[in-house]
Every structure is written in structure tokens, then in C-alpha cells.
Design a binder for these strands. Structure first.
Lengths: 256, 256
DNA sequence: TCTTGACTATGACGTTACGTCATGGCATAA
DNA sequence: TTATGCCATGACGTAACGTCATAGTCAAGA
């Protein structure tokens, strides 16, 4: 059984142009051809198309898909991991752009409406201060004599009230995202991604945080009642869950 | 004071070609020109370039930057927020791709190691319960708000333990039959026949399952590690095989 | 003054994965 | 036979430049 190009396009939900293109770049050449030059696709062509579309849906460029589907000895596993790394990089870029855009918007707000800004946080004031001292504490308790603490002091001392507000909001979002994943296993990639975001959040806002430091911090979250309470009031058990997830995260980082 | 193109390029850390390009698209035309046609940039041009590069660093497309810097009445704030929204969307896409890639990698891992530990769960209570919640889950995840889910709930709630046992045995038989055909092509009529049986099985026992739903389900079997594992422990690669076979089945049904 | 090397100009092609015409041949049912 | 619909090839456009290729310009050293 063979199918004309329009049929195939309909079945696979791609355009005829796409199939023309795949033929032109020798990614998918139809097995048969009529006397008048019409393309005829066989079942095996459909299967290959499935494969191609699968990898396309994962965001692979066509050039790479070509080698993947045409070389049976190709290491798909390695390709997937390389692709994953590229995606992580892309995410980092987007995150950085988001932060930059947010800051710009914030700066515009500041310049334009600084006056009526004072009305805001009355009770918020306290929350911010609490938050500030909490992180300062966190660093001091563990690395009071180290460079990390000095770095934290140096960086945080320049933060404005708005900075703290933003940092707190980001942290809250990360914690909320983690709380939403508490029914997953701590090894789940989604969970690990949130851990990664927390790690990045520390690096961006406080001090260069090694995985060892992160592991240490996570231990404090379960062993120090004040931190435990802070996490558990978001969702009971979150402190422990954070701890476990971070441990896995650090173990995986070690291997690299 | 004016600067030649090379000087400007060095100062702003962009290429000469980039400035040529900006001139060509009328994003930044130098204010002066020598008799021999050399571009000469004034200080005001440099400032404009600064602006352009700033918005570029935020990821704005040049076409938009053009209106931003050339129209003083332009609402930068709104542009920034729209851009922020776009970035959030991009992040979501990247996150989704990451999850998909992770699941695929995980499924590959499982497929290679799962085979050794299959002979578990026979027909004990727990397996049945797991099975029941699994299908309930399956429906809820995709059509939690639709009629299909309600129908599934209504019908499955009346099933007895014996019903579940029968349903599971039927499903297991279908899966086993499919596993036995994995050396065939997915377009093979025998394979397609088994897909048809699976489709009927769904229709009889759970809810009216359109081909679109079936296609959606099959995608979940490969993208959700839990389902992938369930199929692959019958035979490694079965999840992917089911997926491909169902896709062909649905594509062929579309034609009708 | 002549040459040399650094700098500049324009033009054109390549990149990704197709969309969108434009033009014209082929197929099939009425 | 014709109307209608599907098919083919070719060409241009996309975003933001990189990378030649070819050729004119400028300042400095011999």
C-alpha cells in the first residue's frame, strides 16, 4: 500500500511543503514514484516519518535527526543527553533575560512612582527584615569565618528594599513549586530541576554556593527548628522533602 | 567628534558587519559621511547604539527595537511587559521540552534494566488497586474536566473486584499479544488488529475513546515514565511500540 | 613619490525550517 | 470535454548577522 503526498500530510499533520522539504534534504525520500513523477510513500516511509516527528517534537534540529534515524548504530542516549544540556543552557539564558527585564521594569517603576511607594508594605516591612536577617543568619551560622559569609555581606548590604522583595518573591515561588511536587519522588527530574533553581537563586543573590554548602544548608533546614518551621508552614513535610531532594541533587553533581 | 565604523565596533563590542546591517535596515544611520563614502558616527549615534544594544540584550527583535528607539511616544513599559510574557512562554516551552527529554532518557534506562525484574505482581489485591487507580489517573490527567472522565468514573465505580480482574486479564492478554508482535512492523495488519482490540477494550470498559483520545493516550505512554515503565516491564520497548502502532492506527482512521 | 598594510565599501551567498505564491502538468468524475 | 482538485518545480522571504570576494581609501615608512 502506498500513499500520495497529500494523504501522508493529512495523516501525519504536517504540510505538503514539509514533505517536499524532507525529500529535498534527503531526510525522507519516498520509496516509490509514479510515471508522472508523483511521490508515493510506503508504510515504511510512514514509520520513518513517525520517528522523525518524534525527535522533532523533542526539539532536535533536522540535521541531527537525519543522523539519528539514518544511522542505526547512532547513540540515541548520548544525543538525548547532549540535547538536554543544550536545553538547560537555553533555559539559563531565558531565566537571565527574565531577571534583566524584571529589573528594568522595576527600575522604571522606581523612577516614575517612587513617591507613592512608601504606602506599601506596612506589615511587609517586618517580613522583609525577617527575611534579610534569616539569610544573613543562615550564612553566618555555617560559614561565619569564610569567604562565603564575607561575600554574602558584601552583596546583600547593597540590596534595596525592592531587591529584597523580589528575592523573597522568587524564593517563595521556588518553595511553592517544590511544595506542589511533594507527591513525586525526590529523584524525579522535575523535582531536581527545582532544586537547581534554588541553587541558582542562592548563587545569584547571596554567595557562590558550592554543592557542599548546599548540602550543608539542607541539613540545617531539618536540624534547626527555626528553618524547619519556616518551610513546614508552607506545607508540612516540605523541609524534609527539600533536604532529601537536595541530597540527591548533590550526589548527582558529585559524579560529574 | 566623530568615529569611523571600526572604532565604533571596538567600543561597542559589536562587529563592523553588524553596523553595516543596522545601517542597511535603517535602524542606525550614521550622522555623517566622508567624501569617499566612509561612515562617520557622532556621539548621539553612539548613545542610540547603546539603547539599541540594551534592548537587544533583553532579547528584543530588531524590528521592535526600531519602533522603540525611533518613536519617543512609544510605551516602553508595555513593550517590556509584553516581552516578559513572551519570555515566560519561552521558558515554559523549554521546561516542557526538558521534561519530555528527561522522560525519554528515563524510559531508555528503564527499558534496558527493567527486563530482569519483571515476574512480580501476579493477581494480588495491590496490583488490582494500582491498576484501577492507574486508569482513573490516566483519564483524569488528560480529560479531567471532560465527559470522558465523568463517564469513566461512572462506569468504573460500579465494577466489582471480579470485573477488575477480568479487565486486567484482558488487558494483559492484549499487551502480551502485542509484545509477541514486536518484531513486526507497526503497520503490519496483525499489529493494527491488536491496536483495534485495545481500542475496543477501552470503549467497552472505561469510556468512549475517540481516535484522538487514543492518540493522546499513546503519547502519554511514552512521555510519562510511570506508564512507560508499566508497559516496558512486559517487554522492553513495548511502550514505544504501542505508541508507534497506535499512531499509525489513528492516522489510518483519519483518512476515513 | 611609491608602496604597503590597515581600514573601508558594496554585493552576494549561507544559515533554519519551512510558508507562500506562481506557473503549469496530471487525474478523475460529470 | 471540462471543471475541479491534487501534484511538481522554482523562487522568494524569514532574523540577524558571519563569511568571503572584490575593490577603493588612508596614513605612514622607504
Amino acid at each position: 500500500m502506498t500513499y500520495t503526498i497529500g494523504k501522508v500530510a493529512d495523516m501525519a499533520h504536517v504540510s505538503v511543503r514539509t514533505l517536499h522539504y524532507y525529500d529535498a534534504i534527503d531526510l525522507l525520500n519516498p520509496s516509490y514514484e509514479t510515471a508522472s513523477g508523483y511521490r508515493l510513500y510506503a508504510d515504511s516511509d510512514l514509520e520513518l516519518l513517525q520517528q522523525i516527528l518524534f525527535f522533532r517534537s523533542l526539539g532536535f534540529p533536522l540535521a541531527q535527526i537525519k543522523t539519528i534515524v539514518q544511522d542505526p548504530a547512532f547513540d540515541r542516549r548520548k544525543a538525548l543527553e547532549a540535547h538536554r544540556t543544550a536545553l538547560l543552557e537555553r533555559r539559563k539564558v531565558v531565566e537571565a533575560l527574565l531577571v534583566a527585564v524584571d529589573h528594568t521594569i522595576e527600575a522604571m517603576d522606581k523612577g516614575e512612582t517612587m513617591d507613592k511607594k512608601d504606602m506599601f508594605d506596612a506589615f511587609d516591612e517586618r517580613a522583609l527584615e525577617e527575611h534579610r536577617t534569616k539569610y544573613a543568619d543562615e550564612a553566618k551560622q555555617r560559614w561565619g569565618t569564610t569567604d562565603a559569609y564575607a561575600e554574602s555581606q558584601r552583596r546583600t548590604s547593597k540590596y534595596t528594599k525592592e531587591d529584597w522583595k523580589r528575592i523573597q518573591q522568587e524564593a517563595a515561588q521556588i518553595d511553592a513549586d517544590m511544595a506542589a511536587l511533594m507527591d513525586h519522588k525526590v529523584t524525579d527530574p522535575e523535582v531536581q530541576d527545582v532544586v537547581w533553581r534554588k541553587h541558582e537563586h542562592f548563587n545569584h543573590n547571596f554567595y557562590t554556593c558550592s554543592v557542599e554548602m548546599l548540602a550543608g544548608l539542607s541539613e540545617m533546614w531539618v536540624s534547626d527548628a527555626r528553618f524547619t518551621a519556616n518551610y513546614d508552614k508552607i506545607k508540612p513535610g516540605l523541609a524534609q522533602f527539600w533536604h532529601d531532594a537536595v541530597q540527591v541533587y548533590c550526589m548527582k553533581s558529585d559524579r560529574k
